[in-house]
Amino acid sequence: MHSFSPVIETLISELMKLPTIGRKSAERLAFHLLKSNPKQAEALAKAILDVKHRIIFCSQCFNATETDPCAICANPERDHTVICVVEDPLNVLAIEKAGIYNGLYHVLQGRLSPLRGVTPEDLRIKELIARLSGAQIKEVIIATNPDLDGDTTALYLSKVLKPLSVTISRIGLGIPMGGSLEYVDEGTLKKALEGRKQL
């Protein structure tokens, strides 16, 4: 059976370690890199190394950053009395893009998952509690995803944060913009009705 040179095989097997990349996709990417300008490949290799060498996690909020504390935690213009709890740094990016929130963040670095055996010890929950105990935080907004693991994380957080004297809220859940009522399941409808607003 014909196989590629060991150098190409190594690249393919490394690419296959990335999420959602199978053998075929890895082969396509490897041959794209092989055909591309050497500078493009060097820039990609440098970018990967830079991420690994220069990016750290903020010691306060655990967001990905080049400086510690991160730009958000160090910004005096932001509201330091509100913390928005999210699952990963991509969620921070999504909220920041919307430009509607001016408080701080806390990145859990994952979410609880009973079926995958992810427990509170695997997340940055202890650090969140420590942060709330020693600062002037008045409100915690839980912004975990509205799925089983996200709901589990939110429920657990609400239980462990309750004894602390902070307001705990969760972002609104319900029918998405552009959605259609007739296709909404009972769980979503229940959340939408519970979270209704007076006009």
Binding site: P114, D151, L155, E186
Partner: peptide
């Protein structure tokens, strides 16, 4: 959806036990 068993999202012990079974 016939039944979502949404109560599991409101009780961590029941959720953990149902997870074991599933």
């Amino acid at each position: 959806v016939i039944e979502s068993f949404a109560y599991l999202r409101e009780d961590l012990i029941k959720l953990a036990l149902a997870s074991l079974y599933i």
